[in-house]
């Protein structure tokens, strides 16, 4: 049993923002080489990061370890890479994952390749935190660019969807010797957007005692025998909602949160597909070239003779993101679209 497995009921509940804050504080106390760097992270009277995750940390750790930067994503990422190469464990913050494209050289050419180019003599232990996801912010503040980074050997890619795993994975990522891109969905922080998130309870049990959750391990969020659904972030919750509705029709979905996209926990996913014989993948990243295609290919390679139906993918349509809610909701995977894909996969 994983340490800190939720009790049947009761226990302390935190939202993701609180869980991330606690993870960062613990790791900064645990290792003096850990520091934060980014825009608006520690300015007195400021925001505590774009989504308030760092509120209160400067009071404990001071401005030497909570470093506010110019609006210079290349410098933020480059400084993190350089400091990590010297043995520090930086946690750079990019406010919005859309800004990742400002520092692709530092991430793809430097962070991901320095270990390899040095023949294994250098490491780049850094965790880049990046909020993703649509929240009526339009084409340049709502993308889910995880798949770009799944394509980069040398990086690890994590997507967290609940407070318990967010905390355990962030702590593992900080201690990991490889560069980790850590994607969090804006609607899941718990500080706002609850209505957009479907009125969900965005808190989860987070034990008081310290725990880690390993990179590279998926979790089964709901057991079932009819069909396997692999989904991240908001698409995970929409898949769980679809699963509840379909259970009334006798379709029992097994819903898996992969949590780490690179390296992917194939063992858990393949075992589920071999049991159910069906696979639906749901992500808010766009369809073409999305990580769902890679997962579908791997399942086709390894589990073809277990499959009883074509693999279905539900993803954002291949267009930039609009702002108008009625259009935005059309683009991103909805409960209805996920439900329809599952029904189609199950012969409905």
């Amino acid at each position: 049993m994983t340490p800190g497995t939720p009790p049947a009921k009761g226990g302390r509940r935190l939202n993701i923002a609180e869980a991330l804050r606690e993870a960062i504080a613990e790791e900064m106390r645990h290792d003096e080489k850990v520091f934060l760097i980014g825009e608006d992270v520690g300015v007195p009277g400021g925001f505590g990061g774009a989504f308030g995750v760092y509120l209160g940390l400067t009071e404990e750790f001071g401005h030497e370890r909570i470093i506010d930067t110019p609006i210079s994503e290349k410098a933020i990422a480059g400084a993190a890479v350089g400091a990590a190469l010297m043995g520090m464990r930086p946690i750079p913050d990019l406010q919005y994952s859309d800004f990742l494209f400002e520092c692709m050289d530092e991430l793809v050419n430097q962070a991901a390749k320095m270990r390899y180019m040095s023949n294994g003599r250098l490491s780049v232990p850094m965790v880049l935190r990046c909020p993703v996801g649509t929240a009526n912010r339009g084409a340049q503040h709502g993308q889910c660019p995880e798949s770009y980074f799944v394509h980069v050997p040398g990086l690890k890619v994590v997507c967290v969807s609940d407070a318990y795993h967010a905390k355990g994975l962030l702590k593992s990522a900080v201690r990991d010797d490889d560069p980790v891109i850590f994607f969090e969905h804006k609607l899941l922080y718990g500080s706002k957007g609850r209505e957009q998130a479907g009125g969900m309870d965005l808190t989860a049990y987070v034990p008081e005692e310290e725990y880690l959750f390993p990179i590279g391990r998926a979790v089964v969020k709901r057991e079932g025998t009819s069909v396997t659904v692999v989904a991240t972030h908001m698409s995970l919750y929409r898949s769980l909602a679809a699963a509840e509705e379909l259970a009334r029709d006798g379709i029992e979905c097994e819903v898996i949160d992969p949590l780490t996209l690179l390296p992917l926990d194939e063992e858990t996913i393949f075992a589920s597909v071999r049991k159910t014989g069906r696979l639906v993948i749901a992500h808010e990243d766009t369809l073409t070239g999305g990580w769902g295609g890679e997962l579908a290919a791997r399942v086709a390679e390894e589990c073809l003779f277990s499959l009883e139906a074509p693999i279905r993918r539900v993803a954002s349509h291949d267009v930039p993101l609009p702002v108008a809610p009625v259009m935005e909701q059309t683009v991103v995977p909805s409960v209805a679209r996920i439900k329809a894909a599952i029904q189609s996969c199950c012969g409905g």
Binding site: G78, G82, L85, M88
Partner: peptide
């Protein structure tokens, strides 16, 4: 940009 991290470290 990478060199700034060396100096920071």
């Amino acid at each position: 940009t990478v060199v700034t991290g060396l100096g920071l470290a």
